[in-house]
């Protein structure tokens, strides 16, 4: 079979193999570090909240009493505040965001769509503290003097719109959160709509669909992705801290009215953490962080499952383009 290939000098072969292994090992260690950090987050929040968990058990989640002086802590008002403010935000932002995404992807001329989407994406990078300032100094006066009096006058018979026009409160928080998650929902949904095959639209139109009926077909095909975008937005709203802290009014009570001040899990941590006196108080706050962590984890997991499940059998659609 002729002369065999000369082997590399054995020393060099060993050195190279070692270098390759070492390099790979180093990178693997970095990758492992991602795990370590995740583990640290779990460990720290679990350890820090241990005292509170042992003291209150499950009643921590069902009690509405938050009394640092008496040393009794229940997180229900904050859980409620987080869910209601985020729910309100989704109620406002999902229809608006979807409509805007459809406009940008389907109706607007390509150049207009690109330009607006670019601006919307930039707005996603505005820090939350800036939204907070705007909510506090611009939106709150508007709500106090215009929108809330109007709501009270016309819809005041509903418990939802009972009370006084404070300007800050659940409504303000919901609106600010909606504005904050809109860029996420709009730009992701637009991208998803643009990536659905053009031929679907053409097929619908060629069958005699009106424009909105053709859009319906496209939305139907894009549903899993859009659902993912919406839930991603929800995850953001749940954990949002600064803007909410500035506009929600920070009152630890449950009130049916959207005009009343409230508090969220994130806002109570931001407000009280540095002032927490005593181990139990601090531990209760850390347990709130743990609950918030678990909640966002669940939401993200559900989002993934939903998308995965909804995308099942539809993968071929995504492939045709």
């Amino acid at each position: 079979m002729g002369t065999p290939w000369p082997a590399r000098p054995p020393g060099r072969a060993r050195r190279w193999a070692f270098a390759d292994g070492a390099y790979r090992g180093l990178l693997t260690a970095f990758a492992l570090f991602v795990f370590v950090i995740a583990a640290l987050i779990v460990y720290e929040s679990a350890r820090g909240s241990g005292l509170s968990v042992r003291t209150f058990g499950w009643s921590f989640l069902t009690s509405t009493e938050w009394d640092p002086v008496a040393g009794r802590f229940g997180a229900l008002p904050y859980l409620y505040g987080t869910l209601v403010s985020s729910g309100l935000a989704m109620l406002l932002s999902v229809p608006l965001g979807l409509g805007a995404a459809v406009f940008l992807a389907e109706l607007a001329p390509r150049r207009v769509g690109d330009a607006v989407a670019f601006v919307v994406e930039l707005l996603a990078s505005i820090p939350s503290i800036v939204y907070g300032i705007w909510g506090l100094f611009v939106l709150a006066p508007f709500l106090r003097t215009a929108l809330e009096p109007w709501l009270i006058r016309h819809l005041g018979f509903l418990p939802l719109f009972e009370g006084f026009p404070f300007g800050i409160g659940m409504l303000n928080a919901g609106i600010v959160l909606a504005v904050m998650v809109l860029p996420t929902i709009v730009s992701l949904s637009r991208e998803i709509l643009l990536s659905t095959p053009r031929t679907l639209r053409e097929a619908a139109l060629a069958l005699g669909s009106t424009r909105s009926e053709a859009i319906g077909v496209v939305l139907d095909a894009a549903r899993p992705g859009i659902l993912g975008a919406v839930i991603l937005g929800l995850g953001r709203a749940l954990g949002e801290t600064m803007a909410v802290t500035m506009v929600i009014g920070n009152a630890s009570r449950i009130s049916a009215s959207l005009l009343a001040p409230g508090a969220t899990m994130a806002s109570v941590i931001a407000n009280e953490f540095t002032e927490a006196t005593g181990d139990l108080y601090l531990s209760a706050l850390i347990e709130i962080a743990l609950v918030l962590f678990v909640l966002t984890l669940l939401v993200n997991a559900v989002a993934r499952l939903l998308v995965h499940w909804a995308a099942g059998g539809r993968r071929d659609v995504a492939g045709t383009a």
Partner: peptide, 25 residues
């Protein structure tokens, strides 16, 4: 894929929670 998943999970952790953890650490 576990590393990828963990990174995605980390991206979804609220920043205030990260603050609490850094406080403890």
């Amino acid at each position: 894929s576990m590393v990828r998943y963990t990174a995605d999970v980390l991206a979804g952790v609220p920043s205030i929670v990260v603050g609490v953890v850094a406080y403890g650490l």
